[in-house]
């Protein structure tokens, strides 16, 4: 029991250290801007397809499930509002982050893990490069920039998916849907849907890089740390989402009301 607590504490300590060195890597030359842009392309453009697909069907299923209830109360006109609020506040950021954790987090930790195992990280250090600055910082920054953009794409496609479903299955007029979506979108929700993914991106990047760099024990170790990276970063995303939601609620209440 004690050893488990100890391990978690050590992990946290290592993670904080990595985070600190990653931030330091931003301040100093060389900054590896090319690498950052390359990663953004790989992470952002590469995840576009799965994220929009997820968004589209999530919006669709929201309408599919909610519409009959809404109809029962005679509130068909506000169906879009429900979809927009749910997507922008919660499902958009969280589902996108989970998809990206699965797709990108695993790739990052597998890549860094096999670099550790084949001594490429050692070689990098031997040749005078800091692996944190060259590998971790660009990936974390790329995730923090692209995840909000991907989330916005997921939101848009989700709302679109909801609209298509409402029209095709329940015959709801598109104009009515769009009107109610407008009511559902508020500026504080939009702010939240940018802040949240940025934090999630940071967490996914940090956890996956840390997992990758602390890989031990050959190719088996790479597999383990990949699984571990996905599980840990997914859990981090969900836990962080709760606290962020709470935080953002408090923040916007105090400024707006």
């Amino acid at each position: 029991m004690l050893s488990l607590a100890g391990r978690i504490l050590t992990e946290l300590q290592e993670m904080t250290l990595l985070c600190w060195r990653c931030l330091k890597g931003l301040r100093k030359q060389p900054r590896y801007i090319d690498e950052m842009i390359f990663q953004m392309d790989k992470i952002g453009v590469g995840s576009m397809a799965i994220v929009t697909l997820t968004g589209f069907f999530t919006g669709g299923v929201l309408i599919l499930q909610a519409y009959p209830t809404v109809q029962y109360y005679g509130a068909q006109a506000s169906a879009g509002q429900g979809v927009a609020t749910t997507l922008i506040r919660e499902l958009g950021p969280v589902l996108t982050a989970l998809m990206v954790a699965g797709r990108v987090g695993s790739a990052i930790s597998a890549e860094l893990g096999s670099m550790v195992v084949s001594q490429q990280i050692d070689a990098m250090r031997a040749l005078g490069t800091s692996p944190v600055r060259k590998l971790v910082t660009p990936r974390v920054v790329a995730l923090m920039v692209t995840l909000p953009l991907l989330t916005i794409a997921a939101d848009i496609f989700g709302i679109f998916g909801g609209g298509v479903t409402a029209r095709q299955l329940y015959g709801l007029d598109t104009n009515v849907y769009i009107q109610s979506v407008r009511v559902g979108v508020s500026i504080e929700d939009l702010m939240g849907s940018i802040i949240k993914p940025a934090v999630f991106g940071f967490l996914i990047g940090l956890v996956s890089c840390h997992r990758g760099l602390s890989t031990k024990g050959g190719t088996v170790g790479v597999g383990l740390s990949t699984t571990n990276a996905v599980v840990t970063s997914s859990v981090c995303v969900i836990v962080a989402d709760f606290f962020l939601s709470k935080l953002l609620m408090g923040l916007f209440k105090s400024t707006l009301f």
Binding site: P30, S118, A123, A126, L127, G128
Partner: peptide, 29 residues
């Protein structure tokens, strides 16, 4: 480390980089 050259037991080449970029890595950095 700048004055030390190291030849690793398993080579440890960067496998995403070409031979040219591998050899020129240090100068490039």
């Amino acid at each position: 480390r700048r004055k030390i050259g190291m030849i690793f037991q398993e080579g440890a080449l960067f496998d995403s980089l070409s031979v040219y970029d591998n050899v020129g890595y240090r100068l490039n950095e």
